[in-house]
């Protein structure tokens, strides 16, 4: 492990300035739960660590009908937030199933995004809710949809001089249902074998106005199943349609085999979980009780 300098930035400007000067040699410390392991394993050897805890990036607030979340918001904070639970329930559910209490108290929303793990628990719901990211540098800020931000395992479109500062959750259409299902080897402290998050928003006539079918741990990044989303659009939900979409989603998955599961099993589980998630959406939208 190397011996970087450490600065707890006093302001966002200071943090941005440091990023501007040091670029990739400077690494941001949010919760630090992944960073510390990567440094110990010498996957990362930054020269400078910029701690963001003194900057007020830990706010959760309403914004233009949606929500604005600071990048430093901790998982436990999200989990405890009543509006998140009410308005973005799949995100709350992903937080509930995230690791265990001590990690939830340290791990941050921004950290989970920047790590860009294909198995990250929070990314499927964020993507299903059309989250976008505010990336700031000393020369200004830009906003980017989450699904464009992720490039590969651990790879994002964050520029060396940029910081992720906020996550924007847009207002979700009326008459929407979301469902998050995590398949892991245990109920806590588990890395997902497969994660699925679906959202269905219905138009007034009952047809699908917007559909999101997001898959985790089955591709180099968390992905949206374009095929199944296209298949759903404008249709009336039915058992056959759902089965069809589940099959299409499995076709979109390109999983690897590792110690947790084989690629065949993962592909098969995509089909099962997408079917269950969409069925839960259907049930919720038709006034029934959502259940996985």
């Amino acid at each position: 492990m190397n011996h970087p300098d450490y600065i707890a930035a006093e302001s966002i400007q200071q943090a941005l300035h440091l990023k501007q000067v040091h670029g990739e040699d400077a690494h941001v410390v949010a919760g630090g739960t992944d960073l510390i392991l990567r440094m110990r394993d010498e996957i990362l050897a930054p020269e400078l660590l910029i701690d963001l805890r003194k900057i007020s990036l830990d706010r959760i607030s309403k914004h233009e009908g949606g929500m604005q979340l600071g990048a430093y918001v901790q998982i436990a904070q999200l989990l405890a937030h009543p509006v998140i639970k009410e308005t973005y329930p799949a995100l709350a559910e992903a937080c509930r199933q995230f690791a265990g209490p001590p990690i939830r108290n340290r791990g941050t929303l921004g950290g989970n995004i920047i790590n860009a793990s294909p198995a990250a628990d929070l990314l499927p719901p964020l993507m299903a809710y059309d989250a976008s990211l505010v990336l700031e540098s000393i020369s200004g800020q830009r906003e980017m949809p989450l699904d464009q931000f992720l490039q590969g395992p651990g790879q994002t479109r964050l520029a060396p001089n940029e910081l992720l500062t906020r996550i924007m959750l847009p207002q979700i259409l009326a008459n929407s249902a979301t469902s998050f299902i995590k398949l892991g080897h245990r109920r806590s402290m588990a890395i997902a074998i497969v994660n699925v998050c679906t959202r269905i928003s219905l138009a007034k006539d009952g047809s699908v106005e917007q559909a999101r079918v997001v898959l985790g741990s089955v591709a180099p990044t968390v992905i949206r199943s374009q095929e199944s989303e296209a298949r759903l659009k404008g249709q009336l939900l039915s058992e056959d349609l759902i089965e069809d979409c589940a099959r299409l989603a499995a076709d979109d998955a390109t999983p690897i085999s590792d110690v947790r599961a084989s690629s065949e099993y993962r592909k098969r589980m995509v089909r099962v979980l997408v079917r269950r998630a969409l069925t839960a959406n259907q049930s919720e939208l038709s006034g029934g009780i959502a259940g996985a």
């Binding site: 265990g100 080897h185 245990r186 109920r187 806590s188 402290m189 588990a190 890395i191 110690v259």
Partner: peptide, 16 residues
């Protein structure tokens, strides 16, 4: 050994 960690050698915990 491909999983020499308590993360990947899966032992049931309290909720399991």
């Amino acid at each position: 050994t491909m999983n020499p960690s308590l993360e990947n050698y899966v032992i049931p915990m309290a909720l399991d």
